[in-house]
Design a binder for these strands. Sequence first.
DNA 1: GCCTGTGAAGCTATTCACAGCT
DNA 2: AGCTGTGAATAGCTTCACAGGC
Lengths: 207, 207
Amino acid sequence: MTSKKTVERLSLYRRFLNNLDEDGVDSIYSHKLASMCSVTAAIVRRDLMSVGYYGNPKHGYQIKGLIKCIDKFFYTKTARKILLIGIGNLGRALLAYFSKGRSHLNITAAFDKDQTKTNRIICNTPAYHTSELEKVIKEKGLKTGIINVPDIEAQKVAEQLVENGITSILNFAPIRLKVPKNVFVENVDITMLLEKAVYFSKSNNKG
Amino acid sequence: MTSKKTVERLSLYRRFLNNLDEDGVDSIYSHKLASMCSVTAAIVRRDLMSVGYYGNPKHGYQIKGLIKCIDKFFYTKTARKILLIGIGNLGRALLAYFSKGRSHLNITAAFDKDQTKTNRIICNTPAYHTSELEKVIKEKGLKTGIINVPDIEAQKVAEQLVENGITSILNFAPIRLKVPKNVFVENVDITMLLEKAVYFSKSNNKG
DNA sequence: GCCTGTGAAGCTATTCACAGCT
DNA sequence: AGCTGTGAATAGCTTCACAGGC
């Protein structure tokens, strides 16, 4: 019932709020948080309404309370444990990125069909051969997967993940996966994003 | 006047159309293309209308003609040359990804403030020290930049890019950049995307 | 019969604007 | 005076639904 966009922004708010909290700030106005996140004050107020957090006109929103509220919103009974499949350049970069404990998110298992990349620890993450998918997903109770395999393999891999109980996928392969409609897919299509950026660049020099 | 969403989808359509063209297919119906791209047929028809390409009820859309039309839509007098700043794990992965000639997009220059990473060729892309930004941007006429530096440096880097004439940014740093409103920014906030994926994962086992 | 092109309707998300509070 | 919470208005996007063509 909370919209996808609101969920995205709540994640963003929390990150900035955590930074502010670390800096000892204890309250913030909607317009200030909005500016940090490049959104409008009205959107911030509506989003916070939607998670049931209320501020006051005097000091705005209490940061610690708000963080706790957003944490609760994101809290899930399922472990936040994530798998990654496809240990290529981008896969490795993601493993490195998340192993740094940048967030409470954890990539718990990596997979690849190339034996030379598996049976080892990469950036604190154990790397398994794809044949162990079922076993490891069951054992660790994984629900979210990051797909990083080449486009020709992506659909097959997605099906394997879904068969084994994965219900949410972050897909970096440049295709659109066909999955049952109860499975969530978020595509990160870098070529498309870059093409868009080029399209919206302006050719005229300044001055 | 063409919406951001339509631009995104046009990029996607073109990619699939190119594959079909290589496979010798010469026409396609809106519902077929829609299915490949996980959108509806009505959206495809509207998008193609918006670039002025017309199909016919008998065979749908001619693939070669449509590709040409989308190419024209994306064609820009500015070179499609792109810079990347921040040669970390993700930066390197992007360089590798685009050096493979996956698309007509080209990362023409990479930058880092760490001297040990510069003055060399990485994945066919010359790597310069950040101090050469102005010179290289001018020389090559770059208009689009990919930011891959740590969050604390990202705002400063964005300002440097904008000062030197970059008008469009693909930002991988987990902050929201403050730039003049005529500069296009697309954020790729991986932590946020992953948090969203986890949020939308479902805890219940099947059966 | 099944397709395209498209006006009109329907939805979703954002912004406006203001009452109420401190 | 300047903030929050929120109904109402607006904008933007998608789907409906159907006339017209092969």
